[in-house]
Design a protein around this nucleic acid. Structure first.
Length: 217
DNA sequence: GCCCAGGTGGGTA
DNA sequence: TACCCACATGGG
C-alpha cells in the first residue's frame, strides 16, 4: 500500500472513531495564538484555566498583554505552568504584533513560508507553535507535528528513521493534498487518539482503530 | 510520591 | 549536529 493511501486510511479510521474535533478550541485567532504558547508541554486543562483568568481580567488582547505588569501577567497564567517563561513569551508575541499595528490580519497577510519564518523569529515560538498559529489562527495549510504525532507515526513505522520535526512534517506535506480543513482535522484527531488511547505509558491497544497497522510491543 | 502533559531556548562537546 | 537541562502547575 502506498504511503498516500495509508495516510488516508489512518485519517479515515480516526475520523470514523472519534468524529470531528472542532479545533482550535478558542473564540478568536488571538486566543488561538495565546493558547498555542501556553500549551507548550502542558495539559490543555491547565491552559484553559489560564485563558479563563486572562478573559476575566480583560487581558486577552495584545495591548493589555504588552502593557500590564509582568508579575500580574505571570500570575494570571500560573495554572499553565512555566508561568514566568510563558509570560515572557506572550510579551514577545504581543511586542512583535506592534510591528503590524496589533493586527493579526496584517501579520497573517503573507504566504505560509514567510509567515513561518516571521513567527519562528519571535522568542518562545518554535516549529509546533508556529505551525499551530499558521493552521488554526491564520487558517493556512501547514501540517502540525507534535509529540503525539511522533509517537503514533513511530509505532506505525511511518516516521522515517524517527526523524526530526521537519522530516515528519514532510511525510504529510508530500503525501496528502495541502488542504487547510484536512490538516486541521487530522492533527486534532492525532491529539485525540494520543490522549485517549496511544499513551506514552500504559497503552490501551485493545480495540485500537489502528491496531492492525501498529507495531507497538 | 511518581509520571506525564498539544515545547522552546540556551549551553556544552 | 546531538544531547542535556531549566522552566512549573495540576491531574491520574
Amino acid at each position: 500500500m502506498s504511503l498516500s493511501v495509508q495516510l488516508l486510511e489512518i485519517y479515515k479510521r480516526l475520523f470514523q472513531t472519534y468524529g470531528p474535533q472542532h479545533w482550535w478550541p478558542a473564540d478568536d485567532p488571538f486566543e488561538v495564538c495565546i493558547g498555542a504558547i501556553l500549551t507548550q508541554s502542558t495539559a490543555w486543562v491547565n491552559v484553559e484555566k489560564a485563558i479563563t483568568n486572562l478573559k476575566e481580567a480583560g487581558a486577552l488582547d495584545p495591548v493589555t498583554v504588552r502593557d500590564m505588569p509582568f508579575d500580574r501577567l505571570a500570575g494570571l497564567i500560573r495554572p499553565s505552568g512555566y508561568y514566568n517563561a510563558k509570560a515572557r513569551k506572550l510579551r514577545a508575541f504581543a511586542n512583535r504584533l506592534k510591528d503590524y499595528s496589533d493586527s493579526l490580519d496584517a501579520l497573517f497577510d503573507a504566504d505560509v513560508s514567510q509567515l513561518r519564518t516571521e513567527l519562528l523569529s519571535i522568542y518562545g515560538i518554535g516549529p509546533e507553535t508556529a505551525d499551530s498559529i499558521i493552521l488554526y489562527a491564520a487558517r493556512k495549510p501547514v501540517f502540525v507535528i507534535d509529540a503525539y504525532t511522533h509517537r503514533i507515526m513511530d509505532r506505525l513505522r511511518l516516521n522515517p528513521n524517527y526523524g526530526s520535526y521537519e522530516a515528519l512534517q514532510a511525510v504529510f506535506a508530500h503525501h496528502i493534498p495541502a488542504d487547510e480543513a484536512t490538516f486541521n482535522e487530522y492533527h486534532a484527531l492525532f491529539v485525540r487518539h494520543g490522549k485517549e488511547v496511544c499513551r506514552k505509558t500504559i497503552p490501551l491497544c485493545q480495540g485500537c482503530p489502528l491496531g492492525d497497522m501498529c507495531y507497538f510491543e
